[in-house]
Amino acid sequence: MRFTLKKDKSGVVVVGVEGQLIVGNRQELKQKVLDALEDGSRKFVIDFSKTGYIDSSGLGVLVSLSKKIREQGGELRLAGLNADLQTLFELTKLDTLFAITRTAEEALAAF
């Protein structure tokens, strides 16, 4: 499990989630994104193309981050969900809360 942060040339921060986003590591992701927000970044993509599973704590931290980013005038987009993760977002209706794209590249292009 690890998180990677990269900033593209237009200033969008792309966060990669490798492994899982669960109760045991959600704070690490939250802190990394909040640090980037505090440093002035406002546009974020979280790329789940290398993510196996997400529990409700992981979903909760995404909701919390999305709110904080919006409060600062920014936007959080999600990308790369596999079929199971897409179903998880649909059954919790969180697909209505987030802009979700098939790939991180599509999310970047949509900003």
Partner: peptide, 11 residues
């Protein structure tokens, strides 16, 4: 929907 907690058992 915008609550951070409360989805565990539902999931």
């Amino acid at each position: 929907l915008e609550r951070e907690y409360g989805r565990g058992l539902f999931v």
